[in-house]
Amino acid sequence: MSCRIESIGTSLPLDGLSNGSVHHAVAAARECLALSEHPATDIDLVINAGVYRDEHISEPAMATFIQNELCINNDLNGKTTFSLDLINGAAGMLSAIEVIAAAIESNAAQVGLVVSSDSNPDSDPDPSYN
């Protein structure tokens, strides 16, 4: 089975302010889910392809914070969801689609969420750092 784009959402920098990458990812995913026929609980796999990580967090995957904010099967009870980061520069979302397409094709997943967001990782940027 091939896979398709069922819904799309974005979070845009309309006021030029940065609220962190998780904030943008969650906002985009909320719009995406609001326009989707799938409830959040349908999602089997969350892949975050964002490159810049809030507060330069190296562990855990930023996708885990995004999954938790979106309340997607986050307590390991009943249906579960797996979240991971896949970093591949500006091609990350397409690489994530490739992974989800393979998961759908092999029946390891029925519904996937690809999310990406980039924002200044420093909540309090040093003004001398350009």
Partner: peptide, 16 residues
């Protein structure tokens, strides 16, 4: 099989 209990995602964080 992998699953994420993201309810506990802030349990262990490595950062500068």
């Amino acid at each position: 099989k992998m699953a994420t209990g993201s309810k506990w995602s802030d349990m262990c964080i490595a950062k500068p």
